[in-house]
């Protein structure tokens, strides 16, 4: 098991303490841990289990049950394709296919260069703009398969600027 940095461990210990080391607060703890650390690797779950005095298996069972939690780090940009019904009937599946094809990842996967994570979400409520793709706080509306390459290129450029 990879070791956790002392800071992260301390953070987790404090976090659990904030929730009175109450096992019923597990989901709240996991939310905050993921907010802070980006993801919930094995060693993070193990520390949380220890602090809340519950088996590792219980934490792992919860993490793998809820789609919001992830055990792998996400890319710099999280590309979310809305798969809500309104977007679906306006062709979001074609958009998703095109992203999958171009990024060479499955839904939930992160590109090898660590720039993109491809995910789906359900209804951001911008149904009038369907189909919708959101990247961070930016929302792209009325997306066509043709625009996919442009969107990717735009963010590859951004990633390079950040570098």
């Amino acid at each position: 098991m990879a070791t956790l940095s002392e800071n992260s461990r301390k953070f987790l210990v404090e976090l659990c303490k904030k929730y009175r080391n109450d096992e019923h607060e597990l989901i709240n703890v996991l939310h905050e841990a993921q907010d802070e650390l980006g993801y919930l690797p094995v060693e993070v779950q193990h520390v949380i289990a220890g602090e809340l005095n519950i088996p590792d298996a219980r934490v792992y069972g919860v993490v793998t049950f809820y789609s919001f939690f992830t055990m792998v780090p996400k890319g710099k940009f999280d590309i979310s394709i809305c798969m809500g019904t309104a977007c679906y009937v306006k062709g979001s599946e074609l958009i998703l296919d095109e992203f999958k094809r171009r990024l060479k990842v499955k839904v939930g996967g992160t590109t090898e260069d660590g720039i993109f994570t491809l995910s789906t979400l359900r209804c951001v409520g911008a149904c009038s703009l369907a189909p919708v793709v959101s990247i961070g706080s930016k929302v792209f509306g009325n997306v066509t398969p043709l625009q996919v390459k442009k969107i990717i290129d735009e963010y590859v450029e951004k990633a390079e600027e950040l570098h």
Binding site: I54, P55, A57, R58, T64, F65
Partner: peptide
């Protein structure tokens, strides 16, 4: 879990 309180096995994924 309930009888032995070992906590080794648990339901995973959904």
């Amino acid at each position: 879990n309930d009888v032995q309180t070992v906590g080794c096995l648990g339901a995973v994924n959904r």
